[in-house]
Amino acid sequence: MQLRLAGITPESVVDGPGVRFTIFAQGCKHQCSGCHNPATHSFKAGKMFEIEEIIEQIKEKALITGVTFSGGDPFFQAAEFAQLGQQIKELDQKLDIITYTGFLYEELIQDQEKLSLVKVTDVLIDGLFEEAKQDLSLNYRGSSNQRVIDVKKSLRTDKIVKVKL
C-alpha cells in the first residue's frame, strides 16, 4: 500500500512532545487561510511512498518517542494512514501517534474509513486553522479553536476528553 506524501522529517522536536518521526500527507481540501504549509494542498504533488519503506525508516530511528501524522491532512488518505499506524503499533507499542486534521473529531467517528485512522491515533489535534484565532503561545497547534484530544479515553467514554501536551 502506498501513501502520497509531501515529505518526512525523521527527527522533529516541534510536531509533538519528544523526538518525533513526522510524516506530512500530501493533499488537503480545507484551504485554511494562513495555512503554514500550503505546498501540501495539491493532491497531485508530493511523492508516493510504500508503507514498508516508511516502517524501515522508523526502525532506523532509535531516539524517536513517537510518530506524528501531519499534512496536508492525513484523513484524505485515512485507510492508508490507518494501515501505517497499525504497523507502527505492531513495531513498537511505546511509540505514540499524534494526528493533525482540519476535520472535527465528531465528523471523523461517523465515517468508518476515517474512524480506522482515529483508532490508531493516541492524540488527535482537530479543527481548521483559523487565522483570527492564531495563538503562538499554544503548544503544537496554531489556533485556539483546535483541540488536543485523548483519543483512547474519548472513544472509551463516548465524550471528548482533552489533554495538554
Rank of each mutant, 00 (worst) to 15 (best):
L5R: 06
L5D: 01
A6Q: 07
G7D: 08
G7N: 04
I8C: 09
I8P: 03
T9E: 13
T9L: 12
T9P: 06
P10L: 10
P10G: 14
P10N: 07
E11D: 15
E11I: 14
E11F: 15
V14K: 14
V14L: 05
D15V: 06
D15R: 04
D15P: 01
G16E: 03
G16Q: 02
P17H: 12
P17W: 04
G18T: 13
V19C: 13
V19N: 13
R20T: 02
F21N: 03
F21Q: 13
I23V: 15
F24G: 00
A25P: 01
Q26F: 07
Q26S: 03
G27F: 05
C28H: 13
K29Y: 10
K29N: 14
H30I: 06
Q31C: 11
Q31E: 09
Q31Y: 14
S33M: 10
S33G: 05
G34P: 00
C35S: 06
H36N: 08
N37F: 08
P38K: 06
A39N: 11
A39W: 05
A39Q: 14
T40D: 09
H41K: 11
H41F: 10
H41E: 10
H41C: 12
H41V: 03
A45R: 13
G46Q: 11
K47T: 09
K47Q: 10
K47H: 11
M48F: 15
M48N: 01
F49N: 00
E50L: 00
E50I: 01
E50P: 10
